[in-house]
Design a protein around this nucleic acid. Structure first.
Lengths: 188, 188
DNA sequence: TGGAGATGATTAGCCGCCTAACTAACCCGC
DNA sequence: GCGGGTTAGTTAGGCGGCTAATCATCTCCA
């Protein structure tokens, strides 16, 4: 969870500041700060909801990934798969699976063939825990989005997708620069 | 930073899932997941930018609060003020100010009158560090929001404000429940 | 066939955020 | 004045994210 300003600067202040900082684009800045704040608020509500159910967002995500295709069968997966789908490093998954295994919500087993691989399975207790949380979680989402009409939700999704796409391409660029740096400096 | 799904479920999957979970509102769920993902992506880009300048988002926020009114004079403030404005606990501010003081970007001094209070000051080095980062930070914001037109930015701000307002009122409600619980259970 | 490099998972250590508990100082009413 | 509740700041401990380094295994090619 990120540290964020509780009360955002007013737009007039941004205009004022833009006079001193030619790089400051007031409408971009306003949109950016509002996005960070709304995302942060939503995350805090989410974590608060999960805390009431004695789980964390990270653990919940792993359980959801193992539960997978909500209509289908739970599917054992490797830590690397989970890391890829969750968008975190494998080391983070190791830590989460450690605590989930301690609480008997998942099990770890050696995988098939390749002896480096592990397979993480959802246990019956894990499935029951998840299914006990899900309805409340869905209601929580619906409550948070309640002030938006369906049309507004569609608009919001469209605009957020534009921003997320841009963020993605910026991340890509950073990775390329890093790779290029590694090539030009073979052994640090 | 929160662990989040990299690829969101498609809308058809949500419709499918809604048949099994009557509490699932597909458009709310889609908007919610997109908000969390976009917020998370933006935070990652932000942290990545700050890392390149050897600072963290938390430390940057504290420096900004001390720099304050961008056009005005740096203003010493108490840790409690900083915590309130940043939306974190006082303990978090203590930790951030510890490292900022170690790096000589701020100083801590006993405050005026009330001997419990401390005043955190921005040092010259702190101000110079911040001013070296700000232009790039503004360009970073502008780049991320570049795919949106001015009209879209205004719309986005309006919709995000609705959601943030709702999140705020939900948090308020939680706090009231907690307070009520404390009253009805005088000594745990 | 055998060694180099790639790819699994894990470990160790840092950081920021949280809550809960503590200390010191303040204020207020008797 | 002085004792009780309140408030400021800190400390201690936990968690979850990250990177970098380690170890085991696999793969591929000379």
């Amino acid at each position: 969870m990120l540290l964020m300003l509780k009360d955002l600067p007013r737009y007039e202040c941004l205009l004022e500041a833009a006079r001193r900082f030619p790089d400051l684009d007031p409408t971009a800045c306003e949109a950016y700060l509002n996005l960070l704040r709304a995302g942060d608020e939503a995350e805090r509500r989410r974590e608060s909801f999960f805390n009431e159910h004695h789980i964390t967002a990270g653990r919940f995500t792993v359980l959801m990934l193992l539960y997978d295709k909500i209509a289908g069968e739970p599917l054992p997966q490797t830590p690397a798969d989970l890391a890829e789908k969750a968008g975190v490093t494998r080391a983070t998954i190791t830590g989460l699976v450690d605590t989930l295994e301690r609480d008997q919500l998942v099990t770890r087993e050696p995988g098939s063939g390749d002896r480096r691989m592990m397979l993480v399975h959802l246990t019956t207790k894990g499935r029951e825990t998840l299914e006990a949380i899900l309805p409340g979680h869905f209601r929580h989402m619906a409550e948070l989005m309640e002030p938006l009409t369906d049309a507004e939700r569609r608009t919001l999704v469209r605009l957020l997708n534009k921003v997320a796409g841009k963020a993605d391409s910026m991340a890509e660029e950073t990775r390329c620069h890093a790779a290029a740096a590694r090539v030009s400096l073979p052994s640090p």
